[in-house]
Computed example of a mutant assay.
Amino acid sequence: MAEARGRAGASDAAQAHTAWAAVPKIELHLHLEGAAPVALTQARMARAGLAAAPLDEAGGYGWDGFSAFLAAYDRVADLYAAPEGARALAEAVLTQCAAHGVIYAELIMAPLDAGAAHGPDAGAWAERLAAVEEGADAAETACGVVCRLLPHVVRSYGPEACARTAKMIAGVRTPRVVGFGIAGDERVGRPADFSRAFAIARDAGLRLAAHAGEFGGPESVRGAVADLGVDRVAHGARAIEDPSLVALLAERRTPLDVCPGSNVALGVYPGWAAHPAPALRAAGCVVTLSTDDPPFFGTTMSREYAEAAAAWGWGEADFAAIARDSLDAAFCDAATRARLSARLPA
């Protein structure tokens, strides 16, 4: 009987997710390689004759703990290092986004050779960007999903390497590159350590975001705002632990790209009911919803909406407001924002 109830529960959950798929959504926190569909990765591995890693026995992405997740992520990213792989990946990821109602996505990507002693290769980066643009063009033509790119540096490489990478990113641009940020293990270094990289990006006219408030605690959010001058905080959930910080974020209307499914999967919170997104929103903070690395965490944008509705009682009006707030927080130009606005619920 328990097994039968489990099957029924899974079926009910799938139906709930499907019900939210048609709702237009804006996704601002999505890692390109972290969103690689498992089927696409399996196919690439089979063609290359590669062993099972990073796939587990169930055929998904296998990891146990945050550090292991980062390692698994890197193994997946290596499969898509060549321009051909990057193009296929971008098209597949954005097509999957569109299937869950996403009309606009900002993809986070980083130079794969950013940790090299000589610094990242500008030519290789330009080729990779061009390939991703081709994939994004194909997805937009086929599915109507609009994409912009947020190149990131990886904090574990250190401040100097991040500054070198920021200079390269600022000098190699495509029409879709609109922002800059920092990702990786936020327990490594302080936000202020990376202020030079952010100054380079800011001077180049890029909008700024930083991963903070996940494993680094509220102090990382405060540092991202005070020391890096970010326009948005990627994650930001743990700001709730500092009431004065919550008040500051609400006053400044600094958007938080919250990823509840990711936070729960990584053990930052024990479940959706414990997640502070509703409390942050009730306190006046700008809260957006994203998936982060969806196949690693067993989520989609439809599931994020379904879980938020079930755990927090959010309904159509809440999600419509979140979509509007998300579009306002997007780094796209005014003409693109106006075009997207017409596709959102009133």
Rank of each mutant, 00 (worst) to 15 (best):
L245D: 14
V246N: 07
V246P: 12
A247Y: 08
L248A: 15
L248S: 11
L249K: 10
L249P: 09
A250T: 06
A250V: 04
E251P: 04
E251S: 08
R252D: 02
R252C: 03
R252Y: 02
R253S: 09
R253I: 05
T254S: 07
P255S: 05
V258I: 14
V258H: 09
C259Q: 03
C259M: 06
S262T: 14
S262Y: 07
N263P: 10
N263S: 10
V264Q: 07
A265E: 10
G267Q: 14
V268Y: 10
Y269H: 12
Y269T: 13
Y269D: 14
P270F: 14
P270T: 13
P270Q: 13
W272I: 04
W272Y: 11
W272H: 08
A273V: 13
A274W: 09
H275I: 12
P276F: 08
A277C: 13
A277F: 12
A277D: 12
A279V: 13
A279P: 09
A279R: 13
L280S: 06
R281Q: 11
R281A: 11
A282G: 15
A282D: 11
A282R: 15
C285Y: 15
S290Y: 05
S290P: 11
T291G: 03
T291F: 01
D293K: 12
D293G: 08
D293Q: 10
P294H: 03
P294W: 01
F296V: 03
F296N: 07
G298K: 01
G298R: 01
T299Q: 00
T299W: 01
T299R: 00
T300V: 05
T300W: 03
M301H: 00
M301S: 01
S302C: 05
R303I: 01
E304L: 09
E304S: 07
Y305C: 07
Y305S: 06
Y305P: 00
A306C: 06
A306G: 05
A306S: 06
E307A: 04
E307H: 06
A311H: 01
W312M: 02
G313Q: 02
G313N: 05
G315N: 04
G315E: 06
G315R: 09
